[in-house]
Write a protein that binds this DNA or RNA. Structure first.
Lengths: 222, 222, 222, 222
DNA sequence: GATGAATGAGCCTTCATTCAT
DNA sequence: GATGAATGAAGGCTCATTCAT
């Protein structure tokens, strides 16, 4: 049935165009920030016509929202992959998780700039906050689940709830990202950032000591 | 000398107007984000005329820059006060420092929203980055100085440089701020955030253990 | 091919709109001078919307430039037509040339006002000067070519270069235009202006004497 | 009487300030054109306060008008001086007149630019036109008077009224000025411009032949 | 008499959005 | 379905002018 194929092709083409527009949007945000995004620039970058964004997304607001959602979904894919490899021990999954989030390609200057750009306006946009909330809730829950494996099932370690520990871990990661963006020259080396997370966690989960960076002996052999 | 008094009075009045404009700018950013700042709104909020901002700051860009600078200076005043009370022990100065930065009025939703708003665009503005860099350098250095007191003068603790530890601490604080903004409902309680910082630091400075939250015994008495 | 026709029609329509904007611009300059030109007025005069000029010309500066260029091109068309009718003798082409430039519709108050308006700012605008230079060079060269025909091929007449004579002729025309504008009441009659040019030229090309106004006998028969 | 002296001094000071403001206005016009003139710039250039122009001239319009009038008066002074030296013959006064108007310091790029700037807007300003008219009338009359001396009292020469010849002469001068401004590189040399005027006049006043540039013999000795 | 802070109208420009083709 | 010309609201900025000091 040609008509069916045609409509399928059209639909597929439409999806591709949509994706190109979203990618272009993210690229522009990375390069120029949120205010740099204009419908005209998005259209130009995709070699499409000026009216195209309104055609696919109705309003600019909607385009931005979809781009933000896409950003979160890519992020989700990454940490889920790191956390969910059940053939690995909890310890090594944690290690993989930290490396994923604190090394490229995730902890890339451009990508993080996009995060920060959205975060900068999120407090003033309920819709943005909802996207953050809905995914972050799962994110924290998943991290907490990993920590529970490390804790042997206990919900509290040294008087701290696993939830608080999990949230703190995500906060540290966010904090390193911010630092990475704001202090381009003097930010912490990624391995130091990873190690700092492990140092924090090792207070609750001593088995993580093995992952810590070795103590370099100083010149006096101490 | 009337003429002198007169010019002084005028100059003082001008300063006051200038300050009102900066305050209004910050208020608007807190409420609506950077994009919400309009010369007209700033003027309206100060009950002044539309051209007033250009008279005092030449361009909107310059107004924003001055507002950002002011934000940093207020912040600097706060942490310097906490860190510099030399009548207190290093431990209690650290405690004061964390409380200052992670409790109101500094860790206030509006104030933090302003920080985030600026950070969101800073990566794309060299001038903003320079302001960040120039103050953050001192900020980190001052924290490092405090840690050195705690370390008894050693520059390295457990194989980690004091600098890396100091930077990590500031990153954690930033991370908690972000979390505070993005997860209005589910963010960490301030005392938990403070405790988390201390947990991290206590790995390097055992005397901080005394500041940690007490381990609550669970219902089984463990 | 409908798509081709469509795009052609659109393109044609766009050209028409562009032209309307340029015409409106010239009209406003004629009536109110350069400072009278406002994007809003141009839009209003064409019954179009406020943003239209920026759509077609990007900036006001560019709109003005195009209007100026158009003015020069219309002028060029006029003198080329007068000079290039090779079926006529050099003498009658010169006569046609002078009549073209010193009588309506070219030497029209509105048109000349536009010239003067642009000339008034040209010294401070490199781009304007370049337009003047590029066309005036050809203008003078073409006049010089005509004079060479009158001179029988000689480059110098009575010790004056044909180039200097040609430039002087164009200067006289410009001077009459200025006089026409500045002394609306008391300016020279067009035929006297034309005659004055011929008087000047006749010093070098005696055959022009036949074109001069007849000497009116005064009341004393002298 | 001190009070009298004081008021005289004040009045003198006021005149000086007024003159400084006018001079600054002319300077700015010369450098940037009419649109470059702002009250703020005039004040700055005179090292005076922002409100000073309104104080002395009430409105900007009035300031510009006075500047224009001053320009005309300076010009008038120059040509009157050249024309009125009754110890000289009419021929040499004509020569002096042409040299005055077609050589520096009168035919200076900056000065002429100011003329052109005013002329560019004059057609749209009745007040400007009136200034032009009132002085130009005398200017042309004075030139005509000189020509009458040359003509031996006749009002008509070769069928042309002395008035028309006089006007043509002033038009030629204006035309050379325009050419001087618009074709900075390729304009006529001042001596050629002077000669061209004399060539024109010599048609009516043969005794001027003696002032013409000598005919250079070409290589063939012709 | 002089100052300069403050005013407010008017301008150019940007840009999301619409709609005829 | 797609295009791109046209719209019109809104913002930043300039600048002549005013007026309290």
């Amino acid at each position: 049935m040609p008509s069916h194929n045609q409509s399928t092709n059209r639909s597929k083409q439409k999806q591709i165009t949509r994706q190109k527009l979203l990618d272009a949007t993210i690229d522009i945000i990375a390069e120029e920030g949120l205010v740099g995004v204009t419908m005209a620039k998005v259209a130009e970058r995709t070699q499409l016509s000026r009216g195209i964004c309104n055609f696919h997304f109705d309003t600019k607001e909607h385009l931005m929202l979809e781009a933000f959602r896409m950003l979160y979904q890519e992020h989700e894919l990454a940490w889920r992959e790191a956390l969910s490899d059940l053939t690995e021990s909890p310890t090594s999954r944690l290690s993989a998780f930290l490396k994923t989030l604190l090394l490229p390609p995730i902890a890339d200057h451009k990508k993080v700039a996009v995060w920060m750009a959205f975060w900068g306006v999120a407090p003033h946009r309920q819709t943005y906050l909802e996207i953050c909330a809905s995914i972050d809730r799962e994110y924290e829950a998943e991290v907490e689940r990993l920590l529970r494996e490390l804790s042997g099932g206990k919900k509290t370690v040294h008087g701290q709830s696993l939830h608080a520990i999990a949230v703190t871990l995500t906060c540290m990661i966010d904090g390193f990202w911010v630092n990475y963006l704001i202090s381009p020259g003097g930010c912490l080396a990624p391995e130091d950032a990873i190690n700092a997370c492990l140092v924090f966690l090792s207070k609750f989960f001593p088995e993580l000591d093995s992952l810590l960076l070795p103590e370099e002996k100083d010149s006096n052999g101490n």
